Each structure stands twice: as structure tokens, then as C-alpha cells.
Amino acid sequence: MTAMAAGRGDDATIDVPIRDATCLLVADISGSEPKLLMGKRHADQVFLPNKWVFPGGRVEEEDRQFADRFAEPFSPNDLARAIKPFALAGIRELYEETGLLIGSANALPDPGPVWQTFAASGQAPAPKHLIPLARAITPPGRVRRYDTWFFLANANALSAPPAATDGELLDIGWFTLPKAGKLDLPNITRLVLDDVASVFRATRDFGDTVEPLPFYYSDGSTFRRDLISCKVAPPTP
């Protein structure tokens, strides 16, 4: 799912690698209004400085290797193999950035360097609690480009008290959808916020996969929103 694409710089066309990434929307639905977990990026970050985002980050090669040997269930049970590393990376990034953990009481055998921090919690990731929500590829012309899968999880799946964070996100907090919509959001975050609002309008019980899923990308002339399945090999635009 990683590709090379032409991105337009200020003066010339440059090759910008499309890196795989993941975002995890954690929703607290215990109150009268759903609330989502979000944080603010640092002002000195190259990509999306000062923007409010969902926890997430890059998918590492170690995430792919881990997914190949990970025997616990995903959601759905027939989740496409290519998407499984994104789900695992989402849980890892959530823990590193917010200290919140979606896991089970099982030690991780032989964790590599990328998973050492998570492994110290004494738990293993529990991707069965993650529901695929959307996919997006950053349009050309950006300083960084990502092929990102977004997942949704119920806050009742959090399995441990908050731990220390890596400090990558500031002002981490829970926001109702109207309040989240008033934050300084990246365009794609706003689109996914609309998608999750549609889910909540349809049901407050999102234990099942929401299919088909929106896929946002540029076809070279327009920005598109197609519908795809997470149960088959992801399409390449």
C-alpha cells in the first residue's frame, strides 16, 4: 500500500513518498452526547502544526511483522490482511501519545524496539475493539503524504489507567462533536469527523463494522470520496 507520487513543491515537482499511517478515534458514549479524544500538534512540527487531530502516527515495518504473527481476532474477523498492521499501529500510537491502552492481559512475546513501550504495560493489543471507519491519502503538494486508515473504538474498551505519554500531542481532551468541529482541524480530520457523526446518527452501538467505508484521495484533477470495503485488498487509486 506504499507508493511514490508526484507532489508539487513551491518551485518544482518533487517526489514525496506516501507513508502508511493510522488514526484512532476513541469515543466516550457514556453521556448524553458522544465525545471524541483529540490532541493538538506542536507548533514546531513540520506536518500540520498547531492542528487538532486524532491520536495516530506512522505504521512501522515492525507493525507489519507483528501483524503477520498476531493470532488474536480483529474486527471484522475477515479484515483484509493488508489493513491489520494499521489497526495494531493505531493501538500502539494511542498508548504512546495519550497513555490510554486498548489491550488484554497477555504479555507480548519478543517485542521489537517499536513495541517495547507498549510491552512494558504487561498487556497485548486488542484490535477486536477497533472498527475500520475510513481511509484517506494526502493529496499531492503537501510536505508530507500519508495513506491513512482511521479506526473507531469505544472508550469502554480502555483496559488500564492512563500511563505517561511521549508528549507529541498537547492539550489532550474529550470533545463533543460540535465542540470538536470548532477546533482548528485539518481538512481530512473534519471530513472524518462528519463520517463519525453519521455513524452516531445511525446508531450509538457501533460494535459492527460500518460498511462500505469512505475513501478520500486525489485522482490528479479532483478530490474524490469513493466507497470501499475493509474485507478485501484495499484499492490503489
Rank of each mutant, 00 (worst) to 15 (best):
residue 3 A to C: 11
residue 4 M to W: 14
residue 5 A to H: 15
residue 6 A to D: 10
residue 6 A to C: 01
residue 7 G to M: 00
residue 7 G to W: 01
residue 11 D to V: 09
residue 14 I to Y: 10
residue 15 D to M: 14
residue 16 V to R: 12
residue 16 V to A: 03
residue 19 R to E: 12
residue 20 D to A: 12
residue 24 L to M: 03
residue 26 V to S: 03
residue 29 I to N: 07
residue 30 S to Q: 01
residue 31 G to F: 11
residue 33 E to F: 13
residue 34 P to S: 05
residue 35 K to C: 12
residue 41 R to C: 06
residue 43 A to Y: 11
residue 43 A to W: 13
residue 44 D to T: 14
residue 47 F to N: 04
residue 49 P to N: 08
residue 56 G to S: 12
residue 59 V to F: 14
residue 61 E to W: 05
residue 63 D to P: 01
residue 63 D to W: 00
residue 65 Q to Y: 03
residue 66 F to D: 02
residue 69 R to W: 07
residue 77 N to P: 14
residue 78 D to C: 09
residue 80 A to I: 09
residue 82 A to K: 15
residue 83 I to G: 09
residue 86 F to T: 03
residue 86 F to D: 09
residue 86 F to R: 06
residue 88 L to D: 02
residue 89 A to T: 04
residue 91 I to G: 00
residue 92 R to I: 07
residue 95 Y to F: 15
residue 97 E to W: 06
residue 100 L to H: 14
residue 103 G to H: 03
residue 110 D to K: 06
residue 112 G to D: 11
residue 113 P to Y: 02
residue 117 T to L: 11
residue 119 A to H: 13
residue 119 A to I: 11
residue 120 A to N: 05
residue 121 S to D: 07
residue 122 G to C: 10
residue 124 A to Y: 09
residue 126 A to Q: 15
residue 130 L to E: 09
residue 133 L to E: 00
residue 136 A to H: 15
residue 139 P to I: 01
residue 141 G to S: 07
residue 142 R to L: 05
residue 142 R to Q: 14
residue 142 R to M: 08
residue 152 L to C: 12
residue 156 N to H: 08
residue 157 A to I: 04
residue 161 P to G: 02
residue 167 G to W: 07
residue 169 L to Q: 01
residue 170 L to W: 14
residue 172 I to C: 12
residue 174 W to Q: 07
residue 177 L to R: 10
residue 179 K to M: 08
residue 179 K to T: 00
residue 183 L to G: 04
residue 183 L to W: 03
residue 185 L to I: 00
residue 185 L to D: 05
residue 191 L to W: 04
residue 191 L to P: 10
residue 196 V to I: 15
residue 196 V to D: 08
residue 198 S to K: 10
residue 200 F to I: 03
residue 201 R to W: 02
residue 204 R to D: 10
residue 204 R to P: 12
residue 205 D to S: 09
residue 207 G to K: 01
residue 209 T to E: 05
residue 209 T to H: 08
residue 211 E to N: 06
residue 212 P to Y: 00
residue 216 Y to Q: 02
residue 217 Y to D: 05
residue 218 S to A: 11
residue 222 T to D: 15
residue 229 S to V: 04
residue 229 S to F: 04
residue 233 A to Y: 06
residue 234 P to Q: 08
residue 234 P to I: 06
residue 235 P to R: 06
